[in-house]
Amino acid sequence: MGSADFILVINLLVAGLLAAAFAAIAVHDVGRVSARWLAFGYLLGMAYFAIEFSIPAFADARLPVVMAFAVFLGATIAFNGGLAHKYGVTPPWAPMLVFLAVASAAVYLVQDLPRYSLTRMLAYQLPYAAMQCTALGIVLSSRQRLDHLLMLVLAASALQFASKPFIAGALGGWGANPQSYVQTGYALVSQSLGTVFGLALALLALAILVRDVLAEAMSKSETDTLSRLLNRGGFERHAELALRDAVRRGVPVALVIADLDHFKRINDSYGHACGDRVIETFAGLLREAAAEHHVAGRIGGEEFAIILPGTNLAAARLFAEGARSAFGGLPIEGLPADHRCSASFGVAELATDEDFPDLLRRADEALYAAKNAGRDCVRVSLGTARRQFPAAVSGRG
């Protein structure tokens, strides 16, 4: 067994391991379509290496050569489909499959050209380069955060496919016939390059998928199922990050805490299903009112909090007043038409040399002041030196 044969066997085994890895992700998360396509792509990669390894056994290698080309090009198409699903782009299946058919026919036809014809070599390699460029375009056109290292490797991989005909010429060609290909120096270089770029792309795609799986698992662990806001642990973690970022940028940051009024009475009088709908309604109101950079969470049974980076005390109070007024006018299924739900609010702005627990404590004190003032109102904490809770502009307090 020559060096190129040995690399082919290694590539076959590596493709199998990668197919198994992507399949494991697909089994773990059945909704992750990208992993299924990537697993299929590396299964096709295994088939390609098996065909390449068997070519010397054929007297007429035209069909095995074309089959190997088509299978490997199909593997790159499946890889592109996986990337498209991962990055939220509609996979261009029809153009890619038409391209597969046309390119395979072209490779079949150029088999009659001289073995060292540049046209023949380009017909074999350029379609691979085109599919790598397609993958690059998929990542670039996505609306998600771009993975720049993946883009760089895709561009380099496309370049190495386009340069292979010239590498073959520099190394004395790719054999007098398909059967002798694996004995050439070019075969060793070509298979080695394929191993490096194929493995790099696979590991990057695998790392990106694993990163996404872990991020989603963390997000689920930090999300309250009923309200679909952050739970207390998730809110505190994200709030700490938001506060540090606001301090770093030198912008104000405020915290609003809300507590649904007479919530136990609602549960006792109308049932827990109605109570759940009240929580869902208020959480939906917060989600609609919050900007993308705000951090909202359900931090207790009927208690909510929202961090407002870039917002001072006056603006945060207006936010709370708006939420209070809007919530009071929302109809809630299961409750009498004349039943008006309300919430009390406490507001505080981060002071110099204050941390998140201090801010949370002051906002909580303001909330209790609102409760003591008769509920359905907003109270603010004016600072760390003195605790003053002026009457709200509106509300029953």
Rank of each mutant, 00 (worst) to 15 (best):
S180D: 06
P331T: 12
V33F: 01
C377K: 00
V393Y: 01
P91K: 10
W37H: 14
I332R: 05
L313H: 12
S219V: 03
A24D: 09
R375Q: 07
F197E: 03
A296K: 04
T184I: 02
V110G: 03
L318F: 10
S219F: 04
D276I: 13
L206K: 07
V347W: 08
T90L: 12
C274F: 06
T76G: 00
G31H: 11
N177P: 00
N177Y: 05
V247S: 05
L146D: 03
A47G: 12
R375A: 06
G137A: 14
R249L: 15
I138C: 04
G175Q: 05
L140Y: 13
R317F: 10
I167C: 01
A239K: 09
L286H: 07
Y124R: 02
G198E: 09
G82H: 08
A348W: 14
A337T: 11
L350N: 02
L171W: 08
A273K: 11
H293T: 08
G31T: 06
P252Y: 11
D276N: 15
R237Q: 09
D212C: 00
F304Y: 13
A385Y: 01
A369D: 02
L140Q: 10
G234L: 09
A296C: 14
T195N: 01
S190R: 01
A291N: 12
A215E: 13
W37T: 03
Q111Y: 12
L285Y: 03
V98F: 15
R244F: 05
A50E: 02
N312Y: 05
A47D: 02
G16E: 04
K220H: 12
L73R: 03
Y128M: 13
V278T: 12
V27G: 00
T134S: 11
Y116T: 09
S394Q: 08
A385N: 01
K164C: 04
R32C: 09
A168L: 11
I7F: 05
Q144L: 09
W37C: 05
Q388L: 11
G81W: 09
A135P: 04
T223R: 14
A202Y: 09
Y270V: 08
Q132A: 15
L360H: 04
S117E: 13
D259K: 03
Y368Q: 00
W93I: 10
L367D: 03
F356K: 01
R232M: 06
D60N: 15
G137Q: 10
A254E: 04
E288H: 11
L154S: 02
A366K: 01
P165M: 06
V251W: 03
G397N: 02
A273N: 09
Q388E: 13
L209D: 12
L335C: 07
F161G: 00
E354H: 04
S394E: 09
D358L: 06
P336D: 04
F304P: 11
D212M: 00
W174Y: 13
A254V: 02
F69T: 00
P309G: 13
L18R: 02
A200C: 13
S141I: 07
V196S: 02
E236C: 03
